[in-house]
């Protein structure tokens, strides 16, 4: 059992949890992920690390309520526990001095972008961050990103806050201006696909973090497989970060939808079980 020492809602649908896991925290690196199970009947779901504190022995997870597991997670309070927490899994981000790095965080993807930006900043890069969400209510950690970015651009799709539009627009402007050495984009797959398409004509190396459906997270099942550069890769052990220009986005997008019907069914069932519970 892994104790939740602190929990807050970042937005009405995005939760942030700090969980006790000293051994894991001691090993964690930017870009890695964990697999959690909320309860005895729960699914194993991957979440990219949003932060960790080796000294304190905790890790921080940020999750948006979409399926049954993330809704259950949202119901937990500090003092409760996760039944399972496995990690750190996957390869850490490549951290080097590249020069000017654009960090693009979309929606809940802002969370994993944060520690990667921090590591890149510490490695001497100039960080330009673009964070975006559908609307104001889905935006979080603007302050944290502000603190470690040399430049920060905020967008909302509906214009309810900051600049109206999608993240690829300011990204394109930056590329147009020139001098960008690397782009890291994390968010919904469709956003990562468009970010990769935006950077391609400029030949700027683009890294994306693929949130594939997983079971074990150690290379044992192949559920997380993707096609990258014409080869089959396992997101959990070969990734989660890949060259965005080489990813076969059609397969990636299709594979994320495998259980759409079942996920809806499961969530509806969970929600109906919640009625009557306070």
């Amino acid at each position: 059992m892994f104790k939740i020492v602190w929990k807050e809602s970042l937005t009405p649908v995005i939760d942030c949890l700090k969980v006790e896991a000293p051994a894991l925290a001691a090993k964690a690196r930017a870009g890695q992920f964990v697999i959690i199970r909320v309860d005895e009947v729960g699914e194993r779901i991957p979440l990219t690390l949003a932060d960790w504190d080796a000294h304190e022995g905790t890790i921080t997870l940020v999750a948006m309520r979409v399926g049954t597991s993330t809704h259950k997670l949202g119901k937990l309070k500090s003092g409760d526990s996760l039944i399972d927490l496995v990690g750190p899994l996957g390869r850490p981000s490549e951290i080097e001095k590249y020069g000017n790095v654009v960090m693009v965080g979309g929606g809940v993807g802002i969370a994993p972008i944060h520690p990667i930006a921090r590591s890149l900043k510490n490695a001497g890069n100039r960080i330009i961050s673009i964070i975006g969400a559908r609307n104001r209510d889905l935006l979080f950690w603007e302050d944290k990103m502000q603190a470690l970015s040399d430049e920060l651009i905020v967008t909302t799709d509906d214009g309810s806050y900051a600049r109206k539009g999608v993240v690829t627009e300011p990204l394109k402007e930056l590329l147009e201006k020139g001098g960008i050495n690397r782009v890291i984009a994390i968010g919904p797959a469709i956003m990562m696909k468009f970010c990769s398409a935006t950077t391609r004509p400029y030949n700027v190396p683009t890294v994306v973090s693929l949130n594939a459906i997983m079971v074990d997270g150690t290379g044992m099942c192949g559920c997380c497989r993707l096609s990258v550069g014409g080869e089959t890769k396992f997101a959990c052990v070969d990734g989660p970060e890949f060259n965005g220009h080489e990813v076969d986005w059609d397969i990636t997008l299709a594979r994320q939808k495998i259980y759409l019907k079942e996920e809806k069914e499961s969530l509806a069932r969970w929600e109906s079980c919640q009625c009557g519970k306070s």
Partner: peptide, 25 residues
């Protein structure tokens, strides 16, 4: 398309045969 490992793990370890009582589909 499944590997046998994934198929069997979902069924046996995650008890997908009891979905939706168990969450794994």
């Amino acid at each position: 398309v499944y590997s046998a490992n994934e198929f069997l793990t979902r069924v046996n370890l995650m008890k997908a045969y009891l979905f939706p009582e168990y969450d794994t589909p």
